[in-house]
């Protein structure tokens, strides 16, 4: 690598000083002709271009300096302004911000991926064939063109999305596509259906279909991750005495016991009644928040009972609020 560099750039490599003089960076005299500047730039850029040096971070830094220097000096007006001391080379880099190399290291998923450098490995030993041969077959084609990706939107209601469902949709080309929406899909989630996009060219792979799922709200259920939230109204007597009540879950109706002395907002956890288990994820729970609802009219019985009960059993519930209320 060292030998590729003109000797007056040795300083840059040791990191002692990095010249900001564009003439020094390009290694030309200050009176150099346009032609000399261009050829100096070409010589350096050929060795430094980040795409010709995949994985070499230094090359990118030096290429930026060299291209900034060249951009300044190739422009007669800018060069004159620099010679007069009005401007320096900062901010003169090319606007290019992504290089091919940053896309090309994506592995076999990108269409330019090539493993033709391994074709002899596969015959060397069985292990090598196992390690590299299997991928060789995929990367072989040099003219394959991947089909385009397509995007769809799919509206679903809350219960179908929470429980998982299959949907058959008709695509613009008239073909049908079966989509299985996994349990626990939430609004805005995108499903990727590999190979369900437009067909590729020649042997090229088909593109992918991206299906964005829109989930409508439910009147009673809300979802939080894999848990389902539900507010359950109970009567005053159920709150005091406890009771057996039926409650809806996304999987159907179940009977639950509410505890005696339940408070408003108390949460009961119904284990495993949320979104069903999928690979690698535990099933969610249903969280039932109790909402105590008073009778529509407070009749004399209740009124009298409460009054006599208060005389003997008054209790305080606002200890923590005292400072604020007094």
């Amino acid at each position: 690598m060292q030998a590729l560099w003109p000797s007056h750039h040795q300083r840059m490599q040791t990191g002692e000083t990095v010249s900001d003089n564009p003439y020094e960076i390009l290694g030309v005299k200050s009176g150099a002709s346009d032609k000399e500047i261009k050829s100096a730039y070409r010589k350096l850029a050929k060795n430094l271009h980040p795409d010709l040096n995949p994985g070499n971070k230094e090359a990118e830094q030096r290429f930026k300096a060299v291209s900034a220097a060249y951009n300044l000096l190739k422009d007669k007006k800018q060069r004159a302004r620099f010679d007069n001391g009005e401007i320096d080379a900062s901010g003169m880099e090319n606007p290019q911000n992504t290089y091919y190399r940053s896309h090309a290291d994506g592995g076999p998923d990108q269409q330019y991926y090539s493993t033709s450098g391994f074709s002899d490995f596969a015959s060397e030993s069985d292990l090598f064939a196992d390690l590299f041969g299997r991928r060789h077959a995929r990367g072989q084609s040099s003219t394959r063109r991947r089909g385009a990706d397509v995007q769809y939107q799919l509206k679903m209601d809350f219960l179908d999305a929470a429980c998982g469902a299959k949907r058959r949709v008709v695509m613009p080309d008239g073909k049908t596509l079966d989509i299985s929406v996994p349990a626990g899909t939430v609004d805005g989630q995108t499903l990727r259906l590999k190979g369900k996009g437009l067909p590729g060219f020649e042997d090229g792979l088909s593109g992918d279909a991206y299906v964005k799922v829109e989930v409508g709200p439910h009147t009673n259920f809300r979802s939080r991750g894999r848990d389902i939230l539900l507010a359950l109204p109970i009567t005053l007597d159920e709150a005091v005495l406890g009771g057996k009540v039926s409650v809806n879950t996304i999987h159907g109706t179940v009977m639950i016991s509410t505890p005696a002395g339940a408070s408003n907002g108390q949460v009961l956890r119904l284990k495993g009644k949320g979104v069903a288990a999928v690979k690698g994820e535990k099933p969610g729970d249903q969280l039932v928040s109790l909402q105590v609802v008073m009778p529509k009219t407070i009749d004399d019985d209740l009124h009298d009972f409460m009054k006599s009960w208060r005389d003997k059993h008054a209790y305080s519930v606002r200890k923590t609020h005292e400072g604020a209320t007094s």
Binding site: D51, P54, Y100, A104, D105, Y113, S114, G117, F118
Partner: peptide, 9 residues
């Protein structure tokens, strides 16, 4: 270049 990227990967 593509071969280098393949090998690097």
């Amino acid at each position: 270049l593509d071969q280098i990227h393949g090998l690097r990967h």
